[in-house]
Simulated assay, not measured.
Amino acid sequence: MELKCTSSPNGIPLEEYKYSNADFIIPGITWRKRREYKDNLNFLSAFDKSLRYKWAEKMEQGLFRYPLRSLQTSILPGRVKYVAQLNIKRGIERRKPQDIRSIQEKFNPSQFNFNKIKSEETLFAMVRSPPGKAAESEDDGLRMNKHAESMLINGWESRTLVVINVSPLEFGHVLFIPEPSLCLNQVLIPDLVMLGMESILLSGHPGFRVGFNSLGGFASVNHLHLHGFYLDEELLLESAPCKPLCSKMSFYLLTDFPAPGFFFYTDGQDLVTVSRRVCRVTDYLVGRNIAHNVFITRGCDPGNAGCPEARQGIRVVIWARKSCFGSKEESAFNVALCELAGHLPFKNQEDFTNMTEESVIGIIKDYLFSDEEFRILSMELSEYLIS
């Protein structure tokens, strides 16, 4: 890991965070070990310390839409143990989502995009070292989409901006943005998926999470980005049981979980391959105009499902869901990447106080496919991946 100062495309000084596979923390610490540390943060990595310090500095400088201190948090009674948090300010102050009508909608420079943010909102640029390593890996027969090819051709594949989310969900809420001047729309590319997995491995905190909302899946800006944030609570998703859909590609189906979804598992040794496979799935969904959400977290390998302490690798979970175009938002919470994963940022005190696990599941189910639709999609994806 190396920190150095460089210049952004507009000439403003920008710190680079250079990293390599040698900086990955494999395996990460368990939740039990995390609890033993209590308020002692010595388990944090250099990546965590840099991100958290700079993020807190931006908060002190007043660059966010509202101050975010410790959020009121509770665990809903029940098997899922939903993590409920009261974040009224986000519901009021966050930027109004753009009017999106298609999951394949093109980038529109006249709308808000990340070329228009203040330079002070950028924490640093993440630079994979050695440059271009992802592009030099052997072709495993999986196609990259056109956005990825464009990035590789233009040499931007190893540089990603880390920018504060000015309407934060939680402490350390940032956006990972591939070079903004490329003006990529909100469709996942392999290099960004890999960056998301790498950031999980760079973090020493078991609660650092990364996610993606597609257009129609409550993405509020049509400019390619991932979310990253710290949630200092364990989620059932990390150890939920599964069944194989395509074992040789480490592609599984979540079972016994309120929001059925698909996931890829990696021990951290095959990030290039997994990132391309993830995008084969999301490209398929985009091609079918199916909205989706993605959640990346440390988690159990399929052989140790149900054992929360065996979080040896990474789960990349993908939910296909009903599209939300111009629909009214839920009063309690929107159903996007966090909510599907088990993290509920509530917009008002009444729902935060009165919501039950049963009522949460009822809201979430309204945004998911029927059992039969999901069964058919599962079969189609399995056949598509091996074709």
Score class of each variant (00 low, 15 high):
322 K>V: 05
291 A>K: 11
370 S>M: 03
134 A>L: 11
8 S>Y: 05
166 V>Q: 09
170 E>A: 02
157 E>V: 08
285 L>Q: 08
317 V>E: 02
63 L>G: 08
378 S>C: 15
321 R>V: 03
359 S>T: 12
177 I>R: 04
281 V>E: 09
302 P>R: 08
153 I>A: 10
272 V>R: 14
89 K>E: 10
78 G>P: 02
208 F>S: 03
379 M>I: 11
21 N>G: 09
123 L>D: 01
85 Q>V: 09
107 F>W: 04
19 Y>M: 06
360 V>T: 04
379 M>E: 14
270 D>M: 11
271 L>D: 13
385 L>I: 14
146 K>R: 15
221 V>L: 03
133 K>W: 13
169 L>T: 00
165 N>F: 11
164 I>S: 01
32 R>S: 08
165 N>Q: 10
49 K>H: 01
209 R>N: 05
366 D>L: 13
273 T>F: 13
373 E>Q: 11
338 C>Y: 00
258 P>V: 05
345 P>Q: 02
228 G>W: 02
247 S>Y: 10
250 S>E: 15
363 I>M: 06
182 L>N: 13
247 S>W: 08
327 S>T: 15
360 V>Y: 00
299 G>W: 06
239 S>T: 12
267 D>Q: 08
113 N>A: 06
372 E>A: 11
146 K>N: 15
262 F>V: 03
121 E>P: 03
